[in-house]
């Protein structure tokens, strides 16, 4: 389940540093038939995807679906049980240090030395990367300038998350792996983070993002994979994925007599007075319902009609007994 449309119009970037990497054309991240196991438990099962320069790829999925494990393999923190991961054309496990200058990582959990201040943490990071100091500018970008002299241990969860983002921005990465970068952020910080992620992709950074927020994926991602129990259950653009599902019409008819409904192309279900129609003929069925309501004088309260939302798709996937690859 790979896609082959990467943006090829972006110039190859040469990364300055101790180990300069020339980025060959082609996907920045390429995961092929990747499987990862913990003992006998298969956490990631034959997952494949590719991310080109300037693209944002979102991994969605239930808790324990294998998103973090996939990312940790892609950043060389663990070795695949089968299949392969390639980042900028290299094996991330064997070339971890060579890639470190070009690849930034925002882990699911922040990892800081609690007794260093925010500014010292950034300084440490840029020093390790042999980059000029730029703590002030970076803290400003993630709206943490006022917390520069505060020890990281005293920062709030959302502030630590933003510091994480600042470290990722510090190295102007060619590839960014961000594992739930907006979890725990307030709405304003989330938007700000989205803006910064967009800035990165516009400058050609390939981004692999995991998230539990479906609106985030819809907002940012070029392609989305929904993982479920180790496998990619759905893949495509958000529009492609939703198109594969029936559209929904929902309403609370008053008065409501289920037997009086007109003949519809879609399936109907009733839950606590809420009538839902799942249909492949959205317009026709909607027309029939409106016509029926007009004729019989039924009031269609809370009327909504549209394609399936990612939330609904998610709920259906979770309810499936086994993952469908």
């Amino acid at each position: 389940m790979r896609f082959r449309h990467y943006r090829r119009d972006l110039p190859n970037r040469r990364i300055e540093g101790m180990n300069a990497i020339t980025h060959e054309p082609g996907p920045a991240v390429e995961i092929r038939d990747l499987s990862c196991r913990y003992g006998s438990f298969t956490a990631v099962d034959r997952v494949s995807f590719a991310v080109g320069p300037g693209e944002l790829f979102a991994l969605l999925g239930t808790n324990g679906a294998g998103k973090t494990t996939t990312i940790e393999t892609a950043i060389g923190m663990r070795r695949p049980a089968a299949g392969s991961a390639r980042v900028l054309g290299r094996d991330p496990y064997r070339h971890r240090r060579d890639l470190a200058g070009a690849v930034a990582v925002i882990g699911q959990e922040t990892g800081f030395a609690d007794d260093l201040t925010a500014a010292e943490t950034i300084k440490l990071w840029t020093d390790l990367h042999r980059l000029p100091s730029q703590s002030d500018a970076l803290l400003e970008r993630v709206d943490l300038a006022h917390r520069a002299a505060v020890r990281v241990g005293a920062l709030s969860g959302g502030e630590r998350r933003r510091l994480d983002l600042a470290l990722a921005l510090a190295t102007s990465p060619t590839v960014l792996f961000a594992d739930e970068p907006t979890t725990g952020l307030d709405p304003a910080s989330r938007r700000r983070t989205w803006g910064l992620l967009r800035e990165l992709t516009q400058r050609g950074t390939a981004v692999v993002l995991t998230t539990h927020y479906l609106d985030e994926a819809a907002e940012l991602a070029d392609h989305v994979a929904i993982m479920d129990r180790g496998r990619i259950a759905r893949f495509g653009t958000v529009a492609e994925i939703t198109a594969a599902y029936e559209a929904r019409i929902s309403m609370r008819p008053k008065p409501f007599d289920p037997l009086a409904l007109p003949a519809l192309a879609g399936r109907t279900s009733v839950d606590d007075g809420l009538l839902t129609v799942r249909t492949t003929e959205l317009q026709a069925d909607l027309h029939r319902l409106l016509d029926w309501a007009a004729r019989t004088g039924v009031d269609l309260a809370d009327l909504k009609a549209g394609p399936a939302t990612l939330d609904e798709i998610f709920a259906e996937l979770e309810a499936e007994p086994t993952a469908t690859p």
Partner: peptide, 9 residues
């Protein structure tokens, strides 16, 4: 902290 350092050069 070590995990973080491992993502540095």
């Amino acid at each position: 902290y070590l995990k973080r350092l491992r993502t540095s050069p």
